[in-house]
Nucleic acid binder design. Structure first.
Length: 577
DNA sequence: TTTAGGG
DNA sequence: CCCTAAA
């Protein structure tokens, strides 16, 4: 998500070195090294898989309770670090920076109960026979925690004893059976918890080791963005769930037919193992030799904390939730596996060695989970939440999977339900779907088809990234970052405000700024998409003007300097003569 | 890799 | 968003 944390990282130096200030070379190098030492592709597969399933995320009404305790805790932590909230007051070399004072500290000042918004559709669970339809937060949703802060932002906490499960498509598509979909419970797997949050200051050590996710992210960035195979990229899946099955090309539907046929009969059959021809449970489950069929029925999505201004639109809230979920799933989590309550750490073990075989019953106690890829997850309370710069962070705890997913050697396409009714469906996301199917099916297949993979890679190579319109919150963050950093340091802007938004590259940010400037210049009637508050556009214009002028001045100074030098040289020369 | 701009 | 020349 987005964050505002520019003050500490850049507030000072940036003005002394408007155009050159960068992270030390060593730091940058370190990052690039981390990129290389990765081999996380396998993890990515799993994450992709899960993430796709996560598309079915929805909230069950009546079960989202408050978790004020944590908020209070955060509050307390925050108060212990009040000095961090004070913006530094840098001394600008050339001219005052009019934006310096623009950061107002935010803090939790009071906690109240209240209802936030009942009509937050897009993520709730409508229930009924159309199990996968994403409807609205039901009216009976319990009051969420609302934390007012100084300016007043609202913290919506969806969590506590609730949980989110993701119904498998089998249920959705052909069964219509209602799976409970709740917000997840933070009391389980607390130890996996991890903040998804920006680094706070350069002095305060990152409490959550992020090596793992950074590695993943960087790999993706360096290897998959540009040409090559994007199939391992985390991006495509994000909108998969938005698509409706019925609009798939006929060809692709075969997967669904197969799946639903196989699953419909008994969707309760969880990770039940099926034995090939000997003990077949039905024609569709006949497996060839020692294959294990798993079906992950659902999994929980971590607790999400969302802080959003009261004045924000419902749409932006939805987007934030989506983004939070996306971030959570793509950001440094890997899949954990437990067999009969025991964690299986050795990735090299075969399923059989692990006890996952058709010959025993362990499959009933198979548990998948999402865990931070970093070694030692920190406690939530170790992260001071209240910081002037992090207004928009979704705080997520890790999760546990219940199980889900039919993994067969050929048809394990992830089931994308018609969980829609969501206007976020875009042409692009439609385009991505088939890709997802290929991807996912290939991932759960035995590593035997090479030609097929390269085919896919070619197909992927030309794949355009999903279009992801900037939310107002993101625009806010961008504007603020640019106000502080200027228009020529997109890498820093990215690091400052979008470090944890994997899908936003510095090029994206630059492009967005470009369009923002343009948008701000045209009449409101000509603007499209989610309207950006005029106030923000004004800031865009101001910042753009300011930094442009700044650039000009810098240029002029350089020219002057050069002229002086040449002049003095000339004079010198003349004197010598 | 990052910046800067055109497509 | 993509592509890419330049730095």
């Amino acid at each position: 998500m987005v964050s505002h944390k520019c003050v500490e990282e850049f507030g000072y130096e940036s003005y002394l070195l408007p155009s050159n200030a960068r992270a030390p070379r060593s730091a940058r190098k370190r990052r690039s090294i981390e990129k290389r030492i990765s081999k996380e592709d396998d993890n990515m597969c799993a994450i992709d898989l899960l993430a796709t399933v996560a598309g079915h995320l929805s909230f069950e009404s009546g079960s989202s309770l408050m978790s004020i305790d944590k908020l209070i805790e955060d509050h307390r932590v925050k108060e212990e670090f009040p000095e961090e909230e004070k913006p530094l007051m840098p001394v600008a070399l050339s001219g005052e920076n009019p934006y310096q004072g623009s950061l107002s500290p935010c803090g939790f000042s009071s906690v109240i109960n209240g209802k936030v918004e009942n009509e937050v559709d897009g993520f709730s669970y409508s229930g009924g026979s159309d199990a996968c339809q994403v409807g609205n937060f039901s009216d009976d949703i319990k009051p969420d925690a609302v934390v007012l802060d100084a300016r007043p932002n609202v913290v919506v906490s969806l969590g506590s004893s609730s949980r989110t499960e993701v119904p498998s498509i089998g249920n959705c598509v052909s069964h219509g059976v209602r799976d409970d979909v709740n917000l997840f419970s933070r009391d389980d797997d607390e130890n996996f918890s991890e903040y998804i949050r920006p680094r706070v200051t350069k002095n305060s050590p990152r409490t959550v080791p992020r090596i793992g996710d950074r590695r993943i992210r960087k790999i993706l960035a360096s290897r998959h963005w540009k040409g090559g195979s994007r199939h391992a990229d985390t991006k495509p899946w994000r909108n998969y769930y938005l698509h409706q099955q019925r609009s798939y090309p006929i060809k692709k539907r075969k997967n669904f037919d197969h799946i639903s046929d196989s699953i419909t009969d008994d969707y309760r059959m969880r990770t039940k193992m099926h034995r090939g021809s000997r003990k077949g449970q039905g024609a569709s489950f006949v497996a060839s030799d020692s294959h294990v069929k798993l079906r992950i029925k659902s999994f929980r999505v971590p607790e999400l904390f969302i802080e959003i201004p009261e004045t924000a639109t419902v749409g932006s809230l939805k987007r934030m939730v989506m983004e939070a979920v996306s971030t959570l799933l793509s950001d440094g989590h890997r899949v954990g596996l437990m067999v009969q309550g025991k964690k299986v750490r050795d990735d090299n073990k075969t399923l059989h060695q692990t006890g996952i075989s058709q010959d025993n019953s362990h499959l009933d106690s198979l548990d998948f989970s999402l865990e931070p890829s970093s070694e030692m997850p920190q406690l939530l309370t170790s992260h001071p939440l209240g910081h002037a710069c992090e207004e928009l962070l979704p705080v997520c705890q890790a999760t546990k999977i219940d199980n889900v997913l039919e993994s067969d050697h050929h048809d394990s396409a992830l089931f994308l339900s018609d969980s829609l009714g969501n206007n976020n469906v875009t042409e692009d996301s439609k385009a991505m779907i088939p890709v997802a199917l290929n991807e996912l099916s290939s991932q759960s297949q035995p590593p035997s088809r090479k030609s097929r993979r390269s085919e896919q890679q070619q197909q992927q190579a030309a794949q355009r990234r999903i279009r992801r319109p900037f939310s107002v919150a993101e625009v806010e963050a961008l504007v603020q970052a640019v106000e502080k950093l200027g228009t020529g340091r997109w890498r820093d802007v990215k690091l400052c405000a979008f470090e944890d938004a994997d899908h936003r590259t510095y090029v994206d940010l630059k492009d967005k700024w470009k369009t923002l400037v343009h948008t701000a210049k045209i009449s409101p009637q000509q603007r499209r998409g989610e309207p950006v508050p005029q106030e923000l556009l004004n800031r865009v214009l101001n910042a753009h003007g300011y930094w442009t002028q700044q650039q000009m001045q810098q240029l002029q100074q350089n020219v002057n300097k050069l002229e002086q030098e040449t002049q003095s040289q000339t004079t010198e020369g003349l004197l010598l003569l």
